[in-house]
Computed example of a mutant assay.
Amino acid sequence: MIGKDDMMTEATNTVLDRRAAQERANTHFRFPRDLLQEVINYSTGMLGRCFSSIPTDATPDVGVAHIFLFRQVIELADTIEVMLSRGCVSPIRVVLRSMFESTVSLQYQLESEDDIDRRTLSWVQADIRQRRRASERIRDFEISDELTEKMPPEVQDDVLNHIDAMTVALNKPHMREVVEEYDRVRKQRRKWKQGGAPRWYSLFEGPRSFELLAKRFHWSDLYDISYREWSAVLHGQGGVQEIFQSAEGGSTTLKGLRYPIDTIYFMVNLAANFLLQAIIIISNEYRPDEANERNAWYMTEIKPKLDKLGKMKLTIERETLEW
């Protein structure tokens, strides 16, 4: 293991100045970081209380799925808080995309009391199928590629056992309705020559795309303006105009890593609001008696800080590397 003192290569400061990034974080990002941390801290307690409140007679897998999604939103918010504390702000957009998707998924599953089981189990079966397909790819790759013939027998057995376990999970009685609906929609899509597996939220006449799912909960503007940009960055296509700039004399400047961006306060505001939305959704379902206490915490500890954050503007001279 290479320790810090054993590192032979130093970063080029004009490209990556960790100390300067840390100083910026301490100067400009302390307030939004502390705000997000407070929401995260509150959500950790809510997570444990909701988990302990899953009814013992609940349909299998349903409560666990809700807890998983809520935990995922918390973990993504925590990731953003860590990135913010180190001055690594631009990649936060990629994390926000996943955070948005998880929040909307939880929102859809718990939207209607009558549809909770069907919608949640639709999500569960999609997760099971995805994991089974991953193992099937490993199995098929092992058969066709001589390089994987060296795979230890116990690993091969684990892959095959995992495929069997996922198949058993799909065949459980409480999964029958959603599996039949999946098969029906899949057959229909093939008839209409629409490739790919149906989205889990499209089952039982649900929204056909994530765009429609987002619009269902009045996230249209966020989807159209921000989500598309986040997706572009995730797929390696967005943000080029932020990195390169024309300079005097026809030269080109390149911003260093961990450079600050003007929308950072807006992004932290979104992260806090995604997590707040998830807190409201899941606590209304599993801890409804805490609504007054939760609302009081929000009005006292969070809303004034969110209002302040919404008025903050970032003005920092950006370092560039001239070519």
Rank of each mutant, 00 (worst) to 15 (best):
D127A: 13
E113I: 09
V73P: 01
R132G: 10
R132K: 15
R131S: 12
K150T: 10
P55N: 06
R97W: 08
R131A: 08
Q72R: 11
L69N: 10
S90P: 02
C50L: 06
L84Y: 02
T103C: 02
D61Y: 15
A77S: 15
E111M: 03
L96I: 03
R129G: 08
S122N: 03
D115K: 12
F51S: 01
S98A: 01
V73F: 03
R133K: 14
D157A: 04
C88A: 06
C88N: 14
V89L: 09
S98L: 01
L160E: 02
R119C: 00
S112T: 06
S52E: 11
E142M: 14
S90C: 11
E101I: 14
A77P: 13
D117A: 15
R119P: 01
D157P: 00
G87A: 06
S144E: 11
I74P: 00
R86W: 10
M151E: 09
E146S: 10
S105Q: 07
R118S: 05
C50W: 01
D57I: 15
M99T: 09
R119T: 06
T148D: 07
D140L: 07
L110G: 14
D115V: 11
I67E: 11
P91E: 03
A165C: 00
D140N: 13
F68H: 03
D117F: 13
E113N: 12
G87I: 12
H66E: 12
I138G: 05
I54R: 10
I143E: 14
L76E: 05
D140Y: 09
C50G: 09
P91T: 06
R97E: 03
P91V: 13
E111W: 08
V124P: 02
E113H: 08
S112G: 04
I128A: 04
D158S: 13
D117R: 14
T79F: 00
F51L: 02
T148I: 14
E154M: 04
K150S: 10
A58N: 13
G87Y: 00
Y108P: 07
D158L: 15
F100R: 14
L84M: 07
F51R: 03
T79N: 08
L106M: 13
M151A: 11
F141Y: 15
Q72F: 04
Y108K: 10
I54W: 12
I54E: 02
S98F: 00
E154K: 03
Q125Y: 13
D57V: 15
A58H: 08
L121E: 00
